[in-house]
């Protein structure tokens, strides 16, 4: 049950989702990836992608225009 936190603030589409895909590919089932992100459009894409791949995701808007996404593989 490892936990990893990455900061993707300032990255634009499609980079955040690609990095998340790579990170998750190297993680074991049950591990958690925490992502700091500030791009609204990509947030929707990430949540949709998680749903499609049956990963549990949680989202919290920490500030206006900045989100914290927790993905459990």
């Amino acid at each position: 049950m490892e936990q990893k936190r990455i900061n993707l603030c300032g990255e634009v589409c499609p980079v955040p989702l690609m990095i998340i895909q790579q990170e998750l590919a190297n993680m074991a089932t049950g591990d958690t990836l925490i992502v700091d992100i500030d791009m609204g459009q990509t947030v929707r894409n990430i949540l949709r992608w998680c749903e499609k791949n049956n990963y549990v995701s949680e989202i919290d808007e920490t500030e206006d225009g900045a989100w914290l996404i927790t993905i459990t593989k």
Partner: peptide, 15 residues
Amino acid sequence: SGICFSGAFIDIILF
């Protein structure tokens, strides 16, 4: 709506 022309093509090709 967060609509995005480049996103449409990115999503098709990459995802």
